[in-house]
């Protein structure tokens, strides 16, 4: 893991060294045994000490759903809000208190269905938040209805004849809304998960991280076709900035672009002509092409799809206030006496 960037707010250089245990709350974790959420919680708690930010300056905010229990288990400030609205609280909190590090924990129902509007607007504003969307392609807490990311035709309790709707691709939504940081990781690759969470915290602006998360009760194995250890190298492609897209047990295969269409190059002997990943390009076109790659036609890309610099909303708001205050702090008496006044004696 790389050293933390020092331009992040809230870093305390001489903070006593914190460990994973410092971020474990006294609450009993109540997810179903075997749930992918455990891994995300564990990697988060492992990652947090590296931020060198005191616990009291970190806030986890969630909505409703299995994932949204997350804040109870982390020993920081936490707010378990209402369905779909975590981002609204987070936006208010971060705008009022830009020095805080704010995480939003949401799911495919909470973040893309009932709270979809807020996700769009948080990302277009580029509020400096770390949004972790647990995508298990099912409604778990309400016991097994299809979600906005469930595949077309999926049979669930509320779709016994199969769904008749097309799923959303969360990262496509993120790119369309202008997300300055968009990444995907999986619950089963703990190292990649921890590193992706860390990278998200190092980005100023909205960091959107989709985590493919297995719900072993209502949608078991939703991603196992490509996340199982035996097939992972063959069926997923790990995005690395500046490197060509390669996958396979020996990284022997590659991806190249034919116009706007990605093509798998079996046994690509050299890197010539392979798609070289660059998360930092301003135009989200290439990221969009990557986002469209899915199993089985392609290996599933994970990693950081997009990471570009732009001023964050909270920072811009703070600057306007600072500028106005620098020109002359408001005086209540003067405000009350503004406009036309007259004296009665």
């Amino acid at each position: 893991m790389t050293a933390p960037a020092t331009n992040r707010p809230g870093i305390v250089e001489d903070l006593p060294v914190l460990t994973r245990k410092d971020f474990v709350s006294d609450q009993e974790v109540r997810w179903c045994p075997g749930c992918g959420d455990y891994s995300i919680l564990a990697q988060m708690q492992k990652m947090l000490p590296a931020l060198r930010i005191p616990r009291e300056n970190i806030v986890f905010i969630s909505g409703i759903g299995c994932s949204s229990r997350f804040p109870y288990y982390v020993e920081t400030f936490g707010f378990h809000s209402i369905h779909g609205r975590a981002l609204t609280l987070a936006t208010g909190l971060k705008t009022a208190r830009p020095e805080l590090t704010v995480f939003v924990v949401t799911g495919d129902g909470d973040g893309l269905s009932i709270g979809g509007n807020h996700l769009l607007h948080a990302m277009r504003r580029n509020v400096d938040l770390n949004v972790i969307l647990f995508n298990n392609r099912i409604y778990g807490l309400t016991k097994g209805q299809f979600s906005p990311t469930s595949e077309f035709g999926k049979v669930t309790k509320s779709s016994p004849y199969g769904t008749t709707e097309t799923p959303l691709n969360p990262l496509r939504i993120a790119l369309a809304a202008g997300a300055t940081f968009a990444a995907r990781t999986i619950d089963r690759d703990t190292k990649h998960l921890e590193d992706t969470l860390y990278q998200a915290t190092q980005h100023k602006g909205t960091s959107f991280v989709e985590v493919y998360q297995n719900c072993n009760i209502f949608n078991d194995g939703a991603f196992s076709a490509f996340t199982d250890k035996e097939v992972r190298q063959e069926r997923m492609v790990y995005l690395e900035d500046g490197a060509p897209l390669r996958f396979g047990n020996d990284r022997e295969h590659g991806i190249r672009l034919n116009g706007f269409t990605p093509e798998v190059v079996q046994n690509a002997s050299d890197d010539d002509g392979l798609f070289v990943h660059d998360a930092g390009v301003a135009n989200p076109m290439l990221a969009n092409i990557l986002v469209g790659m899915d199993y089985p036609a392609y290996p599933v890309p994970v990693g950081i799809f997009r990471k570009v610099q732009a001023p964050s909303f909270d920072e811009l708001v703070a600057h306007q206030v600072d500028d106005a205050m620098a020109k002359g702090k408001g005086d209540l008496g003067e405000l009350l006496r503004s406009g036309e006044t007259w004296e009665v004696s």
Binding site: I61, F79, S81, R85, L87, T88, L89, A90, T91, G92, L93, K94, T95, A96, N117, H118, L120, H121, V317, Q320, V321, D323, A324, M325, K327, G328, K329, G330, L332, L335
Partner: peptide, 25 residues
Amino acid sequence: KNFGIKTFQAEDEIAAIGSAIGAAY
């Protein structure tokens, strides 16, 4: 703004109150 006031034109009524709750928190 010279009174340190931050205003937020939210995307909807729910976001408006949500943001105010976040600030109160």
